[in-house]
Design a protein around this nucleic acid. Sequence first.
DNA 1: TTGAAAGCGCTAACAA
DNA 2: TTGTTAGCGCTTTCAA
Lengths: 345, 345
Amino acid sequence: MQRSNEIERVATTLREVADLAGVHPATVSRALNPDTRDRVNAKTAVRVDEAARTLGYRVNRLARGLKMRRSLTAGVLIPDLTNPFFPPIVRGIEDRLQEDGYTALLTNTDGDPQRARKGLETLLDRQVDGLILATATREDALVADAAAAGLPVVLVNRRVDQSDVPAVVPDDVGGVHAAVEHLVGLGHRRIAHIAGPLTTSTGHLRREGFLASAGEYGLDVADLVRVADSFTETAGTLQALALLRAHRDITAIVAGNDLIALGCLDALVTEGRRCPDDVSLVGFNDMPFIDKVSPPLTTVHVPHYELGQRAADLLLGRLQDRTRASSQLVVGVRLIVRDSTAPAS
Amino acid sequence: MQRSNEIERVATTLREVADLAGVHPATVSRALNPDTRDRVNAKTAVRVDEAARTLGYRVNRLARGLKMRRSLTAGVLIPDLTNPFFPPIVRGIEDRLQEDGYTALLTNTDGDPQRARKGLETLLDRQVDGLILATATREDALVADAAAAGLPVVLVNRRVDQSDVPAVVPDDVGGVHAAVEHLVGLGHRRIAHIAGPLTTSTGHLRREGFLASAGEYGLDVADLVRVADSFTETAGTLQALALLRAHRDITAIVAGNDLIALGCLDALVTEGRRCPDDVSLVGFNDMPFIDKVSPPLTTVHVPHYELGQRAADLLLGRLQDRTRASSQLVVGVRLIVRDSTAPAS
DNA sequence: TTGAAAGCGCTAACAA
DNA sequence: TTGTTAGCGCTTTCAA
């Protein structure tokens, strides 16, 4: 009656390696750590290596973390992993962290500050060495608190108004400007904008960018700017519907992001307006599969993977040198023209 | 010249709480742990609570994990987070794990066994208590090794041939049967299948299901079954092209999954055949946004979030009771009819 | 170059 | 009911 599940997997310890190699545990520790390896006799080091290999020794990172007061983990807060916008960012983060031996601890907040706070606490319990936040609002208490607690924080995609928190963000203003320029070039004058929540930097800055661009091209956009209360399809549909009904002469819409654009598409169908024949549409992000929708969406491409990578890079830099100056990175974007935009008729 | 970054965040320890409450650290530990709280005087417990709250005490889970030999983490191996198929599964896993105080450690393998192995080692270093694998092939050495090491393992989406490894999988055979039934009902007789890699249970079982269903309806599908060498759009295009060119009389295709179906769509465009007018197409998974492509894809819906939840549930069960019988769960699927299928002409 | 000793923060026998 | 003691596996002074 052997029950194989009962077999405890007994991890080899440093002590056992030391016994086999005939040295003190401290020596094994030194030999196995690249930084201290040169403080031990070359022959001894080799003997330790052999012993470690024979026993299949692997360091216990819990123990190491406890001793060194560094877990080699970073907490990552995102709104929702199933929003296709985030996976590329997360992979960028994870891949970069991994290069330096760090692991990401992912937490979904679903846009709920309460959940964000609880998530942060769990992460702190797990002794994360730093934090990457994709959830920041412009005046985010969480960001302030984490920073005040002395925890290195890096923001990604969204930033806070306070300028001294390191962040990696897309060129929101530039992206929207490219969109407006493109539409104006196609002969559009009645261009509307549906912004994301103004509590986020992306919602706010893209709207600012839209207003500035409109001014630059002498467009009258009074009443043509509305704000969706979330970056979602439904919120987009709601505002697009109101907009299209109030202003029948609109020929183009710049959406706050791709999901809002998707909502606009639904609204256009409901209103019996064709895209791009009657109304042109531009999104923001170029999220995965947005090129497969009908019509394939013209949108501002954001290099999400790179955004994540650079955010992780910034964090690792801070982890290594706490006094490092806090830097903000604005990553370039470019307009991808597909089939949802056409000359104004 | 204050440099706020220099302020070390000094976590409160159990010892400090004990000092403030005027009790021994062990008493604090007991008072704060729900399981042992009743072994301490009610009044003392309250005093400990107060002290803990005043100091903002939070348990150090590294220390606890080291002592208890359980990290309360689970490793999750997936091929690639940016494949939209996986995020719902991962969220299901994370949400369920979180309920029991566990955290997921995510690792991407990119389908590379070498990376999978390295990832597993890192997870073991981090002392994960168990493993959830979405990467399994039918004869997966990794699964065997992990199980042999005594690490509780649960498979999700794909299973191994060896039947004693717990797994949560979709009803592959049933799903394909529903697809074939639907197409036959529409009058199709020349139905092709492009399977995923036969090294995976999903590739293999859906193909088996297709052959069985074809037999049931008396269809001649000799030469109409091909195998894509990965679950990707490109692999799908490649096989679809070959198939469509060799057999001009094909009126319907059952794809191994949605991405392969997307590849078929490309191939149809290339060959100048319309979908669904000339060729009907059915996918598998109903992954996010597949209802937005053109034409919206008829596909077999798999409840991915639930798949993840149940896998986590199974793992937690095993973690709690090592002797628990290994169970395999086949989750029901259903055909979602959209616009990529139409009556045979 | 190596060993001895201490301790990271916590929990769990055992004793009182 | 509470305190004492020991130790999880590791790194790091300090001393030899």
